[in-house]
Design a protein around this nucleic acid. Structure first.
Lengths: 113, 113
DNA sequence: CTATTATTCAACTATTTGGTTGAATAAAGT
DNA sequence: ACTTTATTCAACCAAATAGTTGAATAATAG
């Protein structure tokens, strides 16, 4: 469990990997398509995807020569309940990620860097 | 915001730091007392505390020569809502961390390593 | 069969991380 | 004043991380 949380949180610690997860919120994607918007090599993206897979945050399935990546919410759930255990939190009932982003923009504008 | 999440998640990625946070759930503590149960140097613990502070996960307040550390749930909250934005999660209503741990033991015993 | 496309491997590099030790600072206790 | 206690600083080290490039593998298309 500790090992698993290590992997989950260090996977989430990288902004490229968080971006990838957000892209996968919209739809499952192939490795090359995931790499497209980024300015780093395909090999680097491939490594990120392996890290996300080992953390259980995504799963990959090969179909022919294309490897499809999809979100796997189970690990996310695990991190979620770990954090929630700290209590004193206000769980939100957001219907969508867009709503979340909007609130972030309004509340934390100073913080965007 | 991205910067802040980088710091929060990489702070949470280290098991020593997560242990420290769990200790602080019980009560505020001085640096030396936090270091006591660990097998690493006081200087190493001091560094961990600086990382937790920079991530906003704890706050430190000096009283005389003793520096008291306390949980700061705001940053935790931020990570929480980020993760929650992935949806498809089952927020739990745990009354205590003990209850959380018990469930973890029962459900994930295979996973303790 | 050959070329193209999708993905990963291998070797390498620079930077970051988590640890060490010994010295430094700062506040209290005697 | 001197000693002890609490914490951090500085310099160092080993291992991990995120990136690179070029070659390798594997499946599809022509």
């Amino acid at each position: 469990m500790s090992q698993k949380l290590n992997k989950i949180f260090s996977a989430l610690a990288d902004p490229t990997r968080r971006d990838i997860l957000m892209m996968l919120l919209e739809d499952d994607m192939a490795v090359t398509d995931i790499a497209d918007p980024f300015d780093i090599s395909l090999a680097a993206i491939s490594k990120h995807l392996i890290i996300l897979t080992n953390a259980g945050l995504i799963s990959q399935e090969r179909h022919g020569r294309v490897k499809w990546c999809k979100l796997d919410t189970e690990a996310t759930h695990e991190a979620f309940i770990w954090i929630q255990s700290f209590g004193k939190l206000n769980p939100l009932n957001l219907d969508s990620f867009e709503e979340f982003l909007e609130k972030e923009k309004l509340l934390n504008r100073s913080d965007l860097i």
